[in-house]
Amino acid sequence: MIVKCPTCDKDVVWSATSPFRPFCSERCKLIDLGDWAAENHRIPDKAPIDQALSEEYLAELEQEFIAQDNDFFKH
């Protein structure tokens, strides 16, 4: 099977003899990795964040944490 390199669109044979598949080379693989690290590629979040709900949830978690008789806040 032949696929296109996601970085440069060169044809790549999809087989065990292609060590960088689906990329054509280590260079293209590293370019793609760098794009993910720089957040140029992201999986879209379909649900917007409800800021009020998030703050309420964090407040509840904080109260639960404080209510657990732990030593974190006692020092």
Rank of each mutant, 00 (worst) to 15 (best):
D50W: 01
L33C: 10
P6K: 02
V12E: 01
V13G: 13
M1I: 07
A38H: 03
F20L: 07
I2Q: 11
W36P: 09
I49Q: 10
C5H: 02
C28S: 13
K4R: 03
K29T: 15
A52I: 00
D11P: 13
D35I: 00
I43Y: 13
T7Q: 04
I49T: 15
A67Y: 00
F65N: 12
D11F: 08
C8P: 04
L53N: 02
H41W: 04
S25Y: 00
D71I: 14
K46A: 14
D45N: 14
D69Q: 14
I66Q: 12
L30C: 09
Q63N: 14
P48C: 06
R42G: 11
L58C: 14
C8Y: 02
E60L: 06
I43V: 15
Y57A: 06
Q63W: 06
F23M: 11
D71Q: 14
P44K: 11
I66S: 04
D11K: 12
S18K: 07
G34V: 01
Q51M: 08
S15E: 04
W36H: 12
E60F: 08
K29H: 14
K74G: 12
L33N: 11
V3T: 11
A38D: 01
K4L: 05
K29N: 11
N40M: 08
A47Q: 08
P6N: 08
K10G: 10
I31Q: 06
K29L: 13
K10Q: 08
K10F: 07
T17Q: 13
P6Q: 08
S25I: 00
L30F: 07
L53P: 02
S25C: 01
L61I: 02
A67E: 01
F73K: 00
W14V: 15
F73I: 01
N40T: 07
E26V: 10
I2N: 12
P19S: 11
C5W: 01
V3W: 03
M1H: 10
P48W: 02
S54A: 15
T17V: 08
I43Q: 14
P6H: 09
E64Y: 07
E64S: 12
D71H: 15
N70T: 03
D35G: 13
I2G: 07
S54C: 08
A67I: 00
N40C: 06
K74Q: 07
K74L: 07
I31N: 08
V13A: 15
P22R: 00
G34L: 01
A47H: 05
K74W: 03
P6R: 05
L33P: 06
T7F: 01
P22I: 00
I31D: 08
N70Q: 01
M1Y: 04
E62H: 02
